[in-house]
């Protein structure tokens, strides 16, 4: 199969959807060359750095029959548009009794590792998960990226594409032709029987590396990539934990009220899954601090494969017997 980078896969998905549907158009503070060259000023709207206006304009265009893509670039820049995201985009369909549809795709890169300090190294997706009315995903592979973006552009709701900054250059196989990946369907990236690791984005790759290392010791790790944050595929996560009896959640964001907390709760509040748990749930997350600049500090904050391995060993050590 041909290979594309994570970023190329996103752009290919967008270009295909723009060819397919003339109502799709793109708003961004900088024109992306490949899209600009193909679609020009009619479909690529180069906007001033005014994210509140751009985001709101996407809502108005969506409510007027278009399918805008609003590129926030880095997630940090969308914070100045929080009124439009939280008060408007998320609520407008519900608040008006469902009378109009607001199909929108928002794009935002997330994560750290670039030594760009606190304002440009953020993983705030759980803030958005907390707002009813928004869908969102965070892929870990180029193939998932393409299929999810295409689904999101066709969805009749605001959808946020969180895109891992660390993975932009990652190459991977991408199927030819038109395909979509539904929101709300997790992908089991590796089958295993001793412990379930639920990981996002870059940490999916770190978890797979951890699984390889532990396989040499006879420890069988199942790696689940939810891909989609809202809706979140609780069935697949619970089924895996019922099988393995152990759960580690790996997230580049901090733990407090985060994605990892949500996954832990999904497992523990389900009686059948809770009954099968053999150990306390372990979260392997960033430290709860603003992300620092100096590489030594930044590396100290983020989880990686070694911390995932340590987390897995901890849940294995802490295990109890449960009735089969």
């Amino acid at each position: 199969m041909r290979e594309l980078t994570y970023n190329q896969a996103a752009l290919e998905a967008i270009a295909e959807e723009m060819r397919r549907d003339p109502k799709v158009f793109y708003m961004s503070t900088d024109a992306l060359p490949s899209l600009w060259n193909e679609f020009g000023a009619d479909r690529i709207k180069v906007m001033p750095i005014a994210e509140s206006a751009i985001t709101g304009m996407g809502i108005g265009a969506a409510g007027s029959g278009f399918r805008p893509i609003v590129d926030w670039r880095q997630v940090t820049f969308c914070f100045v548009a929080m009124d439009q995201i939280v008060n408007q985009a998320a609520k407008i369909h519900y608040m008006f009794g469902g009378q109009a549809k607001f199909p929108m795709l928002f794009r935002a890169s997330v994560g750290g590792g670039g030594q760009v300090a606190a304002q440009h190294s953020q993983s705030p997706y759980s803030m958005f998960m907390n707002v009813a009315g928004l869908k969102m995903f965070l892929p870990s592979t180029p193939a998932d990226m393409k299929g999810l973006i295409k689904t999101a552009i066709r969805d009749n709701n605001p959808v946020i594409s969180f895109e891992s900054g660390r993975l932009m250059g990652l190459k991977g196989p991408v199927p030819d032709g038109d395909y979509t990946i539904p929101l709300g369907v997790a992908d089991v990236k590796r089958q295993g029987s001793d412990v379930t690791v639920v990981a996002l984005a870059w940490l999916v790759h770190e978890a797979l590396a951890a699984a390889d290392t532990l396989a040499a010791e006879g420890i069988s790790v199942e790696v689940i990539d939810p891909r989609s944050l809202v809706p979140l595929d609780s069935d697949t996560i619970r089924a895996s934990v019922r099988k393995t009896g152990r759960l580690v959640v790996a997230d580049e964001a901090g733990p407090t009220a985060g994605f990892s907390a949500e996954v832990a709760t999904l497992v523990t509040e389900d009686p059948e899954t809770f009954a099968r748990l053999q150990a306390p749930v372990k979260r392997v997350c960033a430290l709860q601090v603003p992300i620092p600049y100096s590489p030594v500090l930044e590396n100290a904050v983020f989880p990686d494969r070694s911390r995932i391995i340590a987390g897995i060993r901890e849940v294995l050590r802490g295990s109890r017997a449960v009735a089969a």
Binding site: F25, A53, G56, I59, G60, S64, P68, N87, Q88, A100
Partner: peptide, 30 residues
């Protein structure tokens, strides 16, 4: 709101509707 008559909604946030209707203006232009 009544989208059938082009009434895109009353809005509870002061200045919140201005970007939205500007997007409707962009839609009209397109």
């Amino acid at each position: 709101a009544d989208f059938d008559i082009g009434m895109l909604g009353a809005n509870g946030i002061v200045a919140g509707g201005i970007p939205i209707v500007t997007g409707a203006g962009l839609a009209a232009q397109m």
